[in-house]
Design a protein around this nucleic acid. Structure first.
Lengths: 180, 180
DNA sequence: ACGGGTTATGCAACTAGTTGCACAAAGAGT
DNA sequence: ACTCTTTGTGCAACTAGTTGCATAACCCGT
């Protein structure tokens, strides 16, 4: 149950409309907590009725009818509470690993092509993260906020590095196996 | 939609009853695809009506009434088809990363303790994987099946290694930050 | 033979996330 | 003026996973 908290975080970083949030959930926050616009609109509605957020007084009343939201004190308190609450790490759940395990019993036919495709996707993602790191975290930037956000980015970089290495290794192993 | 395929894989490795499957989903397969017994029983029912598995002719008819299932040819074919089908990697979704990002706006109070707790959990998991590696994959074992399963285990080991390193680093960074 | 734990199976309700579609307004091209 | 695309908002239905509970049999000590 973390989507509301992801939205509160995003809105605290910058008050936004539903669509703006959707855009930011396609990058930035979305890199580790993705959400579709439908989820976001639904959740904005809930957060509003719970008194955690409110619509910003519209500058142009109902013209292009873009509704912007901001976080209320209760919302900030709830986010702080949630952040400090212990949570269980959710167990790994990965389809590719399952497919490899299945391949051990039904054969590896068709697997290698998709391993290569995934490798490329992860390489692209890694490059994107590294670009963000260059752009947003040059040596000087280290306010506490920067450090925390950089930490999160580094997790992304290290994870993508892990996947590219592992997939490269897996493709190598698969090549040595007799086809079945 | 991978649970049925996880079950087919498990049943091909060894025909089992619902409870035996549940046990194996607490280790082994469960390390990368977890499931509760309720999910498993429900799915066994579906797989049976679809003609992918069948109950083994009971040795003692309805005594302790333990029902064992085995995979039918159609089930094996379906698993092979699924294994060869390209799939999109699902985007990362991690609560701890989200909490760090939230901490950048509402403060880090209460975070460090849970980071330490997670570090310990990941260290335990890593040790468990390494034990399995020692036990199940000594140098000689390298039939194709072994190599594939070892590959999966290594992904687990490398992932846990990543998390322990990253969490250690994160705890260090947090220590340097002024409390808020 | 009786109460208490363990083994084994399963239903029902709930929650979170996904998919598919709908609709209205604004701007852009003809 | 009039279709066409884009922007922005949102509902409804579906799917997968989780939680809570129910049931029955067997096993064990008293």
């Amino acid at each position: 149950m973390s989507l509301p908290h992801a939205i509160l975080t995003a809105l605290l970083e910058k008050p936004s409309s539903g669509l703006e949030l959707t855009r930011r959930f396609d990058r930035s926050i979305g890199y580790f907590w993705s959400a579709t616009h439908q989820q976001i609109y639904r959740e904005l509605g809930r957060l509003e009725t719970e008194g955690y957020i409110r619509t910003l007084p519209a500058e142009q009343p109902a013209r292009g009818q873009k509704k912007s939201y901001e976080v209320l004190p209760a919302g900030r308190a709830e986010l702080a509470r949630w952040t400090a609450t212990a949570q269980e790490p959710k167990p790994l759940r990965d389809v590719m690993l399952l497919r490899l395990r299945a391949a051990a019993v039904v054969g590896t036919a068709g697997l290698e092509a998709d391993l290569r495709r995934h490798l490329e996707l992860h390489q692209v993602q890694l490059a994107e993260y590294e670009e963000i790191q260059r752009r947003d975290f040059p040596p000087g930037k280290d306010t506490p906020e920067d450090r925390l956000r950089h930490l999160v980015l580094r997790a992304g970089i290290d994870l993508e590095t892990f996947w590219t290495r592992w997939l490269t290794h897996a493709i190598g192993e698969l090549g040595e196996l007799p086809d079945r």
